[in-house]
Design a protein around this nucleic acid. Sequence first.
RNA 1: GCGAUCGUAGCUCAGUUGGUUAGAGCGCCGGUUUGUGGUACCGGAGGUCGGGGGUUCGAGACCCCUCGAUCGCCCCA
Length: 414
Amino acid sequence: MSKTSFKTPQAIRGTQDIFGPEAEAFAFVVETFERVRKLYRFRRVEMPVFEKTEVFSRAIGETTDVVSKEMYSFEDRGGDSLTLRPEFTAGIARAFLTNGWQQHAPLKVATHGPLFRYERPQKGRYRQFHQIDAEIIGAAEPQADVELLAMADQVIRELGIEDVTLHLNTLGDGDSREAWRAALIDCFGAVKGELSEDSQERLEKNPLRILDSKDPRDRKFVGDAPKIDAFLSDDARAFFDAVTSGLDAAGVKWTRAESLVRGLDYYRHTAFEFIPDEGSAAAGALGSQSTILGGGRYDGLMESLGGAPTPAVGWAAGIERLAMLVGEKGEPAIEAIVLVEHDDGLVAANALLSELRAGGVVADIMATGSPKKRYDKAVKQNPKAILRVNETGYYGMSGEGENERLAAVLANRK
RNA sequence: GCGAUCGUAGCUCAGUUGGUUAGAGCGCCGGUUUGUGGUACCGGAGGUCGGGGGUUCGAGACCCCUCGAUCGCCCCA
C-alpha cells in the first residue's frame, strides 16, 4: 500500500462500525427478537429509511426536541423536504394509512433497523442507532397493551437480561391528560422561580417532563405535584386497571411509576419503560442512558397524519443498549481447520474444505505464511479438529473434535 | 446546545521539571530451535506523537483553534 496524498475520510460522528463480539451480541438481540415476535404472531414489515419530513413533524410534534433540533432533514433533487427516520412509529402509521392496511386491523407488526438523530453521542446513544420495534394498530382494547408488554417482557428475559423492571403509568385519555397538564402548570408555575432553568423552560413546552427531572431543585416539588389518578375519567381508569390486571395474569412484573411520562406528543393512556433496577449490573453498564425499552399507546397519532381515528400501541428498544447487557457472545466455535502442509496439496485441501462446509461443518483453511508456522496459527484458533493435507492429499486428523457431521464428511470423501 | 476528561505503532499503553536517531508488550512478517505440534530465542516491517497555528535555541510534552473519543447535562431507545 503506497501512501496517498489525501487523508482517509473519517466515519461520521456518532456512527459505529460494529465488529467481532459486539457484532455477535447485536445479532443475538435481533435473532432473539425475531424468534419471539413470531411466537406472538407479529408480522414482519420493512420500512423506508426516509420519509417526507412532515410525516415526523406532524406525528411527533413540531415542538419536541426530536423534530425541532435532532432530525437529519434535507432537500432532495426534486425539492422535497425529506428526513432520515428518527423513529419507527410515524413511518409505520403513514404506511398503515397509505397502503390500506386498515383491512388487516388489528395489525401486529414488528421491524428493526437504523434510526437517525442528531444528538451528542455518549454511552448508549448514537446518531445512527438501531432499534427493534413492535406495534399493534387498530386495537382499542387493553388486551393489546397486555400482549405487547408480555412480548417485550419475554424478549428481555430470553435475552438473559436480569434486574430490569417494567415501569408503568397511564397518561389517561386526551381530556384526562389535558386536565392533568393544566394542574401541573398551576402547581409548578406557583414556584417557577425556584425550579431549575431547564424546568422553567419545560413549564411551557412540556410540563409533564418536570416530573422526571433529575435536578434536586425540581425533585422537592415533584412529590407534592398533582397525580394523574386524580384526573382520570372512569373509562381511563377502567382501561388502566384492565391493563394491570392483564399483566398480572400474564405473569409480567411491573411497578407503578406515577411520574413516568413520554416525550412525544402522540401518547395516551398506557406509557411504559423497562429500566434496570438501581444498583444492578445492568444499570452500571448503561450509565445515564438507562431506558432499554419504551413505548405506549398512541391513539391520537393517526389523526395527526390525516387519517381516521385509530387506536394503537407500540414500543421500541435500542439494540445497542440491549447488546451491552447480553454479555459476551463469542463467535461460533470453529470445528475444523484444513491445514495445508505443502503447497502442492492446495487443490485437495480446497476440495475437502468444500465438502466440509457442504456437510454443515464450520471450517476454515490455513494455507498461507511460513509453512512451518501454519500449524501454530491453526492451533491458536482453537479448532476442534485439524485436518492435515500434504502433497498427496488428506492423510490424518489431530484433535479430539470429531463429531457426526465431520465424521460423515470424512467417510464420504471422494 | 452546555460542561468535564482524553487523543503516542494494527491493539493496550510508557515517555520523569520541554533537551540528541520516540519505547515496551501483544499482534504481523521472517529466521533458528522444537518436531503430532498453541515452545523458546533472534531479527524485521510499522509512528510526520489526531490535524492546524503559536511560544521557544529546542515541543509528544506549554498556549490557542479545530476534529474525534469518552463521561455527564439536555433529550431519548
